[in-house]
Write a protein that binds this DNA or RNA. Structure first.
Lengths: 235, 235
DNA sequence: TATTGACGTGAACAGTCATTCACGTCATGT
DNA sequence: ACATGACGTGAATGACTGTTCACGTCAATA
């Protein structure tokens, strides 16, 4: 019992930390509660991680590794773009259900009490997916699969916005409740949700070549043939 | 000085509260700090609002009123659907910039330390927009302006997801940094951002009538004519 | 087996914060 | 001008939490 903690014990501490931070947020999380839930004394957390701040960052990074693996696995398979997107969405939904704490902790990271980590963590967390998605949609655009009327980075941004909200919707209480208000029972059917979001995204990728002529436009990336449909219906 | 506080003074306390809750989150927010920043003693906050929980709810509701007004105003004008959507987006972006605390507080509401309000607040906050958007897209679908392949409520859900993330992206530090990572300088141009998101949404509304035949489909709301384009390009 | 010291333990400390309430102040009514 | 009491004040209270460190334990070594 008085030997250095092994990998598994440290992992258990990190898991307990993730659960606690996800449950309360950074500041209200209690180090003593983490220690108790992990079956160790507070002392070891300070010996191994320094202080609460460093422990928090360790928890974030630990959860990042696992999320990364999920993402990579889901994105790895080949196949048509549509199928890949749908697979990614479904994987994220399922991962959010089964590892709710991980996603809930992400939500906590974005909160005000983590303000001083905002820059660092945003860069650490988002730059990977940002680059990945930007490349994906850049290639799609070159292959003529993504409308020329939206820059690939912006498309990647909207895409990730939808994915993040979907993850929160399956792992944080507030967002769960919100999804139920919006979708009713439709929220319960993972396959349906993934299917509809895929359709939504594919529609957005194809773009609407008509009916935007009247809008304020700022340097449209490319002009397109005129619209062949009735122009608009005011509602 | 020893008269009952007037409307303005109470408003100032609520504003100070919103700023504090937005800055730290619920638990770390200090009632004493709010009192100091509002120029009153802690006592009055307890006299007028009961306790910290009740004060928090009062702040949320106060900010809701103002947000509601913005939303209603932006949604009120007529005109073509496209223009209305774009106007709404632009209004939300500008409102997020000018009243960052309000949106940042929303983000805090979704956090774990507000768990016990999740149900109540979600219902209070979201049901208005949820119903509004669902009706909007229901009408659009009946007018043939929204693809039949997505249920209006789900479309409204995705729509609001995008709007929420956009608001956070202009008011919370973490999301601001994230947006910069994804979009670079494009994030700075409000008109451009509103324009691109509008295009994205209009594309999604129109839907992609092709190329989903290979996907897992769950009870597609309606069948559509076969696609006339090459089917897919694997990437 | 005796010794050693690396290691985890958890009581104790210092600081913070929500909440209370005895008190001082001043607008009002006479 | 005085008495009254409604009202805000802010020091005090009690609870809680991050962090430390003197101590006990036990695996390894000779």
């Amino acid at each position: 019992m008085y030997r250095k903690l092994d990998e598994a014990a440290l992992g258990a501490i990190l898991e307990a930390g993730i659960a606690e931070f996800a449950r309360c947020g950074f500041q209200p999380a209690s180090v003593a509660a983490v220690a108790k839930s992990a079956g160790v004394s507070v002392g070891v957390i300070y010996k191994y991680f320094g202080d609460k701040d460093a422990f928090f960052l360790a928890c974030v990074r630990h959860s990042l590794d696992l999320l990364d693996a999920t993402l990579r696995e889901a994105a790895a398979g080949g196949g048509p773009l549509e199928a890949r997107i749908q697979r990614l969405i479904l994987a994220l939904i399922r991962q959010s259900r089964s590892h709710a704490s991980y996603n809930a902790m992400y939500n906590e990271i974005t909160s005000g009490s983590c303000r001083r980590y905002a820059g660092t963590l945003a860069r650490e967390i988002e730059s990977r997916t940002a680059a990945l998605y930007a490349r994906l949609f850049d290639e799609a655009q070159q292959a003529g699969r993504l409308t020329e009327r939206i820059e690939p980075q912006l498309f990647a941004f909207f895409f990730d916005n939808l994915l993040m909200m979907l993850q929160f919707s399956y792992s944080c209480e507030y967002y769960q409740e919100r999804m139920r208000i919006f979708c009713g029972d439709a929220a319960l059917d993972d396959t349906k949700m993934a299917d509809r979001l895929t359709r939504f995204l594919l529609g957005a990728m194809k773009g609407d070549v008509c009916s935007i002529s009247s809008l304020t436009t700022s340097e449209p990336p490319e002009s397109r043939p005129a619209c062949s449909e009735p122009n608009r219906i005011s509602g």
